[in-house]
Amino acid sequence: MPATVIPDSEVPVVDFSLFNHGTPEQRIKTAKDIVAAFKEVGFVYVVNHHVADEDIDQAFQHSARVFKLTQEELNKPEVVRPTAEEGAKTYTARGYSALGREKVSQDVYDDDKLKTLRAVADFKEFFDIGADKGPPAVREPNRFPSKDAIPSFEDFMLKFFWECHEFGLDILRAIAIGFDIDEDYFVNFHQDADHLLRLLHYPAVERKSLVSGAKARIPAHSDFGSITVLFQDSVGGLQVEDSKYPGNYLPAPPLKGSAIVNIGDFLMRWSNNVLKSTLHRVVEPPVAKQLGNDVELSEERFSIPFFLQADRHKVIQCVPGLEGESGPKYPPVTAMEYLNMRVAATFKGKG
């Protein structure tokens, strides 16, 4: 497709068909363009990828249906997400999380500071889905509502999970090629498909509570894992920190048929900070309707992030060739050690 520019956004657009179906030279150039975007911005719009538009649309339809289930259904023990605990021997990351249960903490672990952060609730709910085969499924089965409550939800979302997995692995291959290392270098650390597919719902909310700061969609944060593949609905609200002017945020509006891919903290650490895990946030969307008496509702929003995470027991250390003059900035770590620490903080103080 011709070059696309997103108004008022510095996030570049890359045509991924040239990586999968182009000449060897086009494949390498696409990989280099993706790495350049991740070095400078940390984000990239990917178009002409291999997740079908109709599957993305269907995923959003299923997302809308699951959040219309009753709280009684969503909070059943076999559906609700267990409480994350620091130092746990496994992840506790499948199932439904109610409004306000998670609070983005951005490297805050102190109890008092976390309590202060929780005074402003993140007004969102979400449903997490993992692999249904291999080690992740053995360690932690999925937590789906009954098929009577929402027919075809489980079957479709698992199919969609594996589509996103294959797409994510190709992005990891592109990053490796962009670094002039073996294209399966990162893929080899993601063999278990220890990822999370998240259905995110931001309900309609009184605009005044967002403007005043009493509630938030999601405040500025970076993601925890290797990379995130994000599908947005048409509402908008995502903003990315301006790499030229830290503290300022630029819109990353919906682009039909695209996925937005960004670097997570784990891969930034892995790359010795060569790749950029950029702060981003979700702000007040457009006003949906006026209720009278100066009451306005901001429109509900849906998004679907797919968090690619390294195999939990594999030790990662600085990518060969990225040590720089001063050597690795971080000690070796496993994905489980790092992600459990980060996830536990986001749920601390909530059951």
Results as ranks from 00 to 15, higher is better:
residue 161 F to I: 08
residue 172 L to R: 00
residue 149 A to I: 07
residue 109 Y to C: 11
residue 148 D to P: 05
residue 131 A to Q: 03
residue 118 R to T: 01
residue 119 A to Y: 00
residue 134 G to Q: 05
residue 173 R to C: 12
residue 179 F to W: 07
residue 175 I to A: 08
residue 134 G to P: 06
residue 155 D to M: 02
residue 184 D to E: 13
residue 115 K to H: 07
residue 165 H to L: 13
residue 160 F to S: 13
residue 155 D to W: 00
residue 169 L to K: 14
residue 181 I to Q: 04
residue 162 W to T: 10
residue 175 I to W: 09
residue 120 V to L: 05
residue 155 D to N: 05
residue 148 D to T: 15
residue 174 A to D: 00
residue 139 R to Y: 03
residue 130 G to D: 00
residue 106 Q to F: 09
residue 178 G to Q: 03
residue 153 F to G: 10
residue 109 Y to R: 13
residue 104 V to N: 13
residue 158 L to F: 05
residue 163 E to A: 14
residue 124 K to E: 06
residue 134 G to D: 07
residue 130 G to I: 01
residue 109 Y to Q: 13
residue 185 Y to A: 05
residue 144 F to V: 06
residue 110 D to I: 08
residue 177 I to T: 07
residue 149 A to K: 02
residue 139 R to A: 13
residue 118 R to M: 04
residue 138 V to F: 06
residue 147 K to I: 10
residue 121 A to W: 00
residue 114 L to C: 02
residue 107 D to T: 02
residue 159 K to P: 04
residue 134 G to F: 02
residue 170 D to A: 05
residue 154 E to D: 09
residue 137 A to M: 02
residue 121 A to F: 02
residue 141 P to G: 10
residue 164 C to D: 04
residue 163 E to R: 13
residue 134 G to C: 00
residue 183 E to L: 01
residue 135 P to F: 08
residue 165 H to S: 15
residue 173 R to Y: 11
residue 181 I to M: 09
residue 115 K to Y: 01
residue 130 G to S: 06
residue 119 A to R: 13
residue 125 E to F: 06
residue 173 R to I: 04
residue 160 F to E: 12
residue 118 R to Q: 04
residue 145 P to M: 03
residue 162 W to H: 09
residue 143 R to G: 08
residue 118 R to H: 04
residue 133 K to G: 06
